[in-house]
Amino acid sequence: MSETLIQIFNCRKSFGSLEVLKDINFSVNKGDVVCLIGSSGSGKSTLLRCINRLEHIDSGQILVDGQDIYDQSVDLNKYRAKVGMVFQSFNLFSNLNVIDNCIIAQQKVLKRDKTEAHRIAMTYLKKVGMEDFAHAASTQISGGQKQRVAIARALCMNPDILLFDEPTSSLDPEMVQDVLDVMKDLANEGLTMIVVTHEMSFAKEVANKVVFMDKGVIAEEGNPQDIFTKPKNPRTQEFLKRIIR
């Protein structure tokens, strides 16, 4: 459980004159479920996107499996196939139906043949409880269903890590639990996950590490008990006071 999967050293990132990430250092072990919390604009999502290289860090180093992911020799597409990403706005391919959403990258990136890709897609759709909707148009299902399909789509690539960028923030309240249940299952199976979230109960229950970010720095990190019951940093205390009523 203690094998280090991701190490981030002195990571900086600016958008124009706005410094979003200021000297970020942290690491994730294999099997960890890390929750990134903090108010909007604190840099949580940007950090997540840097790990997937959807954004470029300005300086610093991100090692995944001991490999510098910003190194010239890294095959970006191969790397990304191993690091799944689930977005706040689902981003299902709207020109494809549910099953094809799960199949296309398997065929194009992993070069699996159609029947195998189909079989794997059905396995994961079953896992997230969406197998009955395999042939539904991806634009015609509800938000919670879309997000579960998006998770299945990411799982089809057999990723080493799954990154969640506020996966439940744009869902109706009653849909949130379905998605969180799926994520909980994955966590229990030992999948490494980094979750940007505002669901404090999820963080409390599932995470084994909570990272509180504030204005581009990691203000506090630790296990959920410590962070939620006896936060040391006054900014963490203030944030938690406002969010937990």
Binding site: F87, S89, F93
Partner: peptide, 15 residues
Amino acid sequence: VDVGQTEAARSLGMT
């Protein structure tokens, strides 16, 4: 086309 569509495809490793 929503930029999220491209991001999703790229995040799955598609060129």
